[in-house]
C-alpha cells in the first residue's frame, strides 16, 4: 500500500566531540505501509533510547533541522512529557504521531507538514510535529486540533506551537495554542 509521501527516518545520538550535524544519521527511507511496519519493528522503541538521542521522521528531501529551507519559516507543535511518562506514554504517543504523518491525517493541510521529532531527554522527553510555514494560521491550527485529538489528550491539556525562528533565539513563546 503506497503512501502519499516517501519518508526518511533519522537518528540523532548526542556526542559532544562531534559537530551537531555529524551526529545526525539517515537510517532508511520508505514509501509503503508495509515497509513502515518493517522499519518500526526493527528499531528500538523511543523509550529504550539513551538520553540525548532523537528519532526524526521527515518527508524525503527535508532535513530534520531548522536550517533546511523547508523548515526555516516554520515551527512545531510541541508535546512535553513529564519524566514519569517515558514508560507510560512516550511510545504510544510517538507511534500515534508517526501514523498521523504517514496516513496524512491532516488531509489537505498535510502538505504543510515537514516531519516529526522525538527527543529523549533526562529532564523530560518531547515530541513535536514540524510544519513549514508558521504564518499559515489556518493550517497550523487545523493540524494542532487534529493532532491533539489523535494523541487522545484531554481537552484541558494545552499544547503550544512555536516558530523555529523564536526557538532559535531561545524564546519559548507560544505563537498558537490548542
Amino acid at each position: 500500500h503506497s503512501l502519499e509521501n516517501r519518508w526518511a527516518l533519522w537518528f540523532f545520538k548526542n556526542d559532544s566531540s562531534q559537530a551537531w550535524q555529524d551526529n545526525l544519521h539517515l537510517i532508511i527511507k520508505f514509501d509503503t505501509v508495509e515497509d513502515f511496519w518493517a522499519v518500526y519493528g526493527h528499531i528500538q522503541l523511543a523509550s529504550k533510547l539513551s538520553s540525548g538521542c532523537d528519532y526524526a521522521l521527515f518527508k524525503d528531501g527535508i532535513r530534520p533541522m531548522w536550517e533546511d529551507s523547508r523548515n526555516k519559516r516554520g515551527g512545531r507543535w510541541l508535546v512535553s512529557l513529564a519524566k514519569h511518562q517515558r514508560h507510560s506514554k512516550l511510545d504510544r504517543l510517538w507511534l500515534e504521531t508517526l501514523l498521523c504523518l504517514i496516513g496524512e491525517s491532516f488531509e489537505e493541510h498535510s502538505q504543510e507538514v515537514c516531519g516529526a521529532v522525538v527527543n529523549i531527554r533526562t529532564k523530560g522527553d518531547k515530541i513535536s510535529v514540524w510544519t513549514r510555514e508558521a504564518e499559515n494560521q489556518a493550517s497550523v491550527l487545523h493540524i494542532g486540533h487534529v493532532y491533539k485529538q489523535h494523541l487522545g489528550l484531554s481537552t484541558k491539556a494545552i499544547i503550544g506551537y512555536q516558530a523555529h525562528a523564536d526557538t532559535a533565539t531561545k524564546s519559548t513563546r507560544n505563537k498558537f495554542v490548542v
Binding site: 500500500h1 502519499e4 518500526y40 501514523l99 496516513g103 498535510s110
Partner: peptide
C-alpha cells in the same frame, strides 16, 4: 489531485496482517 489517506484503524490492521 487525490491524496492517499489511511486512518489509524487501517494502518494498525496492516501491522497485524501476515
Amino acid at each position: 489531485g487525490t491524496r492517499i489517506i489511511y486512518d489509524r484503524k487501517f494502518l494498525m490492521e496492516c501491522r497485524n496482517s501476515p
